[in-house]
Nucleic acid binder design. Structure first.
Length: 732
DNA sequence: AGCACGCCGACT
DNA sequence: GTCGGCGTGCTC
């Protein structure tokens, strides 16, 4: 009887064998009995006969698989190869790798069918009187449309609102049905909906370079300042790819995926764009996943996990804003979608474009080493001038709402000219701490031991690490003094202070508290560009992908934290943030300026960035990384552990270190730690990390792999929650 | 990870 | 005398 090896979704670094009536294709899902439960796994190997085991081997009796869920492989060979590579590279259990590759419906065992949901007329709906009897014009039109035959829900939705459909369904005039033969995507025969703008010289060079080598793996770093027209380059290079009937996969950061981004691709080519992001329903997700797999859609644009989308005929992969940290998954299988894109493009033999105005040092290093083709766009489209960067020394200056006196007059002059001003502060809430004025004790979150952030609008304290919330106390927890004062400034307070400083100026705050609703962010951004507000206050969100043509002044209030951070990447992140923010201003012939308020005006990082720009800074930073033997000039992995008992975690990580200690000198590797994570305690558990570092990536990996079994069999490994993070980007 | 089995404390 | 605490061990 055939034997099937199955990757089962459990945190065990092995596969499990089952007997089966017939051979099952590798890459198909099966339902299998596992202990006392039934799980959905993926077939990773299938063989006709049990291997002839030597006589003294104890014969294991295999359980039989319960059900074959896919008649043909659900995943093609490149995705199977990708899963295997993931399991090896990230040292992660293969079953869990497969579980993260699958849309949740498939993970739960949903059967895949070619039928897609649609609407058709019910018996009553066929009655001609039904249409006449309807009041709503839209409902009548919808009914007429369906009178011509059943239609996929997607297409009905494109023309009629959900309310119309619901009304007709409630009246019993239409009913849900399944459409078995979905229209074959005819996307390769599009006609351009708009005449592409003439490419600039730089764009032309980039486009020509990319078009020159189609259908093979060539990685490009498209290093273009904000406003230089990277998206136009994407649009022009994907056109010939689409015309050949080959699909394009575009990855974008979590926050950058706005309808505008999608709209730009739809408008140019007039074809449907498949969208994948975390807020979609499972059904919608699976729908796009299937369309991509069948080849029904030509363009797929999505966030991190979209890198796992199956493609029938891949033609190109693009990672936009490739430096963005949201491409790194921070739990479970800690993959980096950008790195994975490189791997996948290689497997699929298609070109790969990594685009950014502020490339990650990893990608820049690869470009400088000629592993990637370096394409640069240094000029802003339409000749808009670059934003002027300046440092404002806030030492010994009176501060109002956290802003130095000198800056306020600069802001005033910009506002008086009718321009918009953007004030950036990466701290939401009213104040980052509440202190007792009597004993100096801060009000801390019990489970994280970090100060609560005060949110005045809710009158509550919020822990920004674990999300815990409590009422504002009336007295100090340790000395019972009633004299509690807020300390520091968050966006909420900044907004209030600016309201007092500029009472006649319309102001808006953009942070995750203020734009919680579904379309709120998009609406606010539209309002800003319609000049409804003149003063914009906000966090991170403002730095990502949105353009503010009327902003002529950007003010950054909290540079100092990043200048002296324990995280060696903090400077890189700050430089990226500042450069991205600077790119938001000074469009449309309005020269912009940007002021960085700091107590350390002479700091070399700030000076380098201001005087020489990001690309010089980045090259300088790479030199420093080289001297310090830090990534990307070395390779890192981090063991993290957390438990209620801090000493248990430290002991565990010490033991991990000992597991590897013997061969450390051989691999020229070293350890840092165990040391507390930057967020030392979260949700009541103490967190520590052990950093492993090697100059050679391959050495690190073989070293890691060699002793991982020893780590797993440590008694403490069962008591401490631990994880392994390859190529970590965040040490919190 | 689940989910069992298993062996010691406060309850009807 | 039981219900239930979570320690330990296994999953083809």
């Amino acid at each position: 009887m055939p034997i099937i090896d199955v990757a089962v979704p459990v945190p065990l670094r092995q596969t499990f064998s089952y007997s089966s009536e017939q051979l099952v294709a590798v890459g198909a899902r099966v339902k299998v009995p596992f202990g006392r439960r039934q799980l959905v796994g993926v077939v990773v190997a299938s063989r006709a006969e049990p291997e002839h085991s030597s006589e003294n081997d104890t014969p294991v009796k295999l359980k039989a698989i319960a059900e074959v869920l896919d008649n043909s492989p659900l995943f093609n060979t490149t995705l199977i190869a990708l899963a295997q590579w993931l399991s090896g590279y990230y040292h992660h259990p293969i079953g869990e790798v497969w579980a993260t590759l699958m849309p949740s419906k498939l993970r739960k065992g949903a059967l895949l069918s070619d039928a897609q949901p649609g609407w058709m007329l019910s018996e009553e709906g066929h009655d001609p009187k039904a249409i006449a009897g309807l009041r709503g014009k839209k409902q009548q039109q919808c009914l007429e449309l369906l009178n011509q035959g059943p239609l996929a829900s997607d297409e009905v939705k494109a023309q009629f609102s959900a309310a119309v459909i619901k009304a007709l369904e409630d009246k019993g005039l239409i009913e849900a049905t399944l459409i078995t033969h979905p229209p074959a995507g005819d996307w390769q025969h599009f006609t351009l909906q708009q005449t592409p703008p003439t490419a600039s010289t730089e764009q032309g060079v980039a486009i020509a370079a990319i078009n020159q080598q189609p259908g093979q793996f060539v990685p490009y770093l498209l290093d273009g300042v904000t406003g230089s027209g990277k998206t136009e380059v994407y649009l022009q290079v994907i056109e010939p790819v689409l015309r050949q009937g080959r699909q394009v996969l575009i990855l974008v950061p979590e926050i950058g995926l706005t309808p505008q981004t999608v709209g730009r691709f739809e408008r140019r080519f007039g074809i449907a764009v498949g969208v994948l992001h975390s807020q979609m329903t499972d059904t919608a997700r699976l729908q796009v996943w299937q369309q991509a797999r069948r080849g029904d859609i030509g363009i797929i644009i999505g966030t991190r996990s979209a890198i796992f989308t199956p493609l029938k005929s891949p033609g190109m992969i693009i990672v936009d804003e490739e430096h963005d940290e949201s491409f790194k998954q921070q739990d479970g299988l800690r993959y980096h979608a950008r790195d994975l894109a490189v791997k996948r493009a290689h497997n699929e033999q298609v070109p790969l474009i990594l685009g950014s105005a502020t490339p990650s040092l990893e990608s820049l290093n690869n470009a400088l080493n000629k592993r990637y083709t370096h394409l640069t766009l240094q000029h802003r489209a339409g000749g808009a001038s670059h934003t002027q960067l300046k440092v404002l020394d806030s030492r010994d200056q009176p501060l109002h709402a956290g802003i130095a006196q000198g800056l306020i007059s600069i802001m005033r002059s910009h506002l008086q000219q009718g321009n918009q001003v953007l004030v950036f502060l990466n701290r939401r809430g009213f104040a980052p701490a509440v202190l007792c004025h009597h004993c100096g004790q801060s009000v801390d979150c019990a489970s994280c031991e970090r100060p609560f952030t005060y949110h005045k609008s809710q009158g509550r304290l919020q822990c920004h690490h674990c999300g815990a919330s409590r009422r504002m106390p009336t007295q100090c927890g340790s000395c019972h003094s009633a004299d509690l004062q807020t300390s520091g400034i968050g966006t909420e307070q900044l907004e209030q202070g600016l309201g007092k400083l500029f009472p006649d100026i319309a102001q808006v705050r953009i942070d995750s508290d203020a734009v919680k609703g579904k379309d709120k962010l998009i609406n606010r951004l539209d309002e800003i560009n319609a000049r409804k507000y003149q003063l914009l206050v906000g966090t991170q969100i403002l730095s990502k992908g949105h353009h503010f043509p009327h902003v002529t002044l950007v003010v950054v209030l909290d540079c100092d934290g990043a200048l002296f951070s324990a995280d060696f990447r903090a400077a890189e992140k700050l430089a990226q943030l500042i450069t991205q923010l600077a790119g938001r201003a000074g469009r449309a012939n309005k020269p912009g300026e940007m002021w960085l308020q700091t107590d350390n005006p002479g700091h070399p990082l700030l000076q380098d960035l201001i005087n020489n720009g990001f690309s010089h800074f980045a090259r300088q930073a790479l030199q420093e990384r080289k001297l310090a033997q830090l990534p990307p000039l070395s390779s890192q992995a981090v063991f993290r552990g957390e438990a209620n008992d801090a000493s248990q975690v430290i002991n565990f990580l010490q033991q991990v270190k000992q597991c590897y200690g013997v061969s450390a000198d051989v691999a020229h590797g070293s350890f840092i730690g165990p040391l507390p994570c930057l967020i030392e305690k979260r949700q009541g558990r103490f967190r520590f990390m052990l950093i492993m570092q090697c100059q050679q990536r391959a050495a690190l990996h073989s070293w890691l792999k060699h002793h991982l079994k020893d780590v797993e069999s440590l008694p403490l490994a069962a008591k401490v929650r631990w994880s392994l993070d390859i190529d970590p980007v965040d040490f919190s």
